[in-house]
Design a protein around this nucleic acid. Structure first.
Lengths: 154, 154
DNA sequence: CGTGAGCAATTGCTCAATCAAGCAACTATG
DNA sequence: CATAGTTGCTTGATTGAGCAATTGCTCACG
């Protein structure tokens, strides 16, 4: 490696600085306020909501544990516990996978689907109010692409 | 309230949808990759780094516990534990506050300052590589303003 | 057919973060 | 100047997350 990291030691200019500080804020504040809005509204914490939502969009409303974990940005073990929480509320059930008996499918129940339908307006409102509202007039597609690349090293 | 929430039930359009999904990704991936880069490099986790950094910028390199907690987006009790971790490494010490004996100041030690100087290049490189790099060509100041508003209800 | 390598999911443990309760010190009021 | 209430910080209990070890199953190869 003749040039290990281009010129990473150039200090941040003031815009970069401001963006980084604001990023810290966003990552702290946004999920908490959305979660708080939802919990106060309809009693589904964000992690569990995300799992229900992903299941509802999957064919046959079912997903393998590792798929669902990846979709929710959660470790497999974290997903096991989340599904257990949802299962005790009757919102999800687990079924052995037909074509590979090592695997399990998390399956959204009718009660789970109903709960999701109850809570999505609250989620949508929170997302608009706490986040999207503040990005009006910006190029959202461009921003989404940048967000999609962030965290990678390239 | 004649109009409780404008029109929050309009579903997300595809750009908004993409942005929200990408946001979830960013909030998961960015802090983890930055933290991992730093830890593998120089052994200062991001939470502790943030505390050291805020202290180093404060007058006299000292801050009251609640100030520091707010600056790091951490609860007061979370900050107490973080400072304890830093204190056992000799990077910070606690001193009673002169003008109010209930209060304590977290004070950056010379060792703490030295550790920060060792680790900031690694932090800077991680921030550029994992985040800023992907936002080249965008209006960073505008974005920082939007980030600054996000999470508020207005 | 076994048997061993390898994968899917769960379980045990640890850790960092929160909330709630507690203690100590300050302030305001009669 | 006593005492009621508030504030600043710490401590105890709980929670949710990850990693490492484990269990149960598949499948390739002899």
């Amino acid at each position: 490696m003749p040039d290990p990291s281009s010129e990473p030691l150039r200090p941040l200019d003031s815009d970069e600085e401001a963006l980084i500080r604001a990023l810290g804020r966003v990552m702290y504040v946004v999920p908490r306020t959305i979660d708080a809005d939802m919990v106060s509204d309809r009693q589904v914490p964000l992690t569990e909501y995300t799992a229900l939502m992903n299941l509802s969009e999957a064919p046959d409303r079912r997903m393998r544990m590792h798929e669902l974990a990846a979709a929710c940005y959660l470790s497999l073990s974290g997903m096991t516990r989340t599904i257990i929480r949802l299962e005790t509320q009757g919102l999800v059930k687990r079924e052995r996978c037909e074509e590979d008996a090592r695997g399990w499918n998390a399956v959204l129940t009718d009660a789970g689907f109903a709960r999701l339908e109850e809570s999505w307006p609250s989620h949508l409102a929170a997302v608009r109010r706490r986040f999207l509202r503040h990005f009006e007039g910006l190029d959202l597609a461009q921003l989404a692409r940048a967000f999609g690349r962030a965290g990678t090293a390239d």
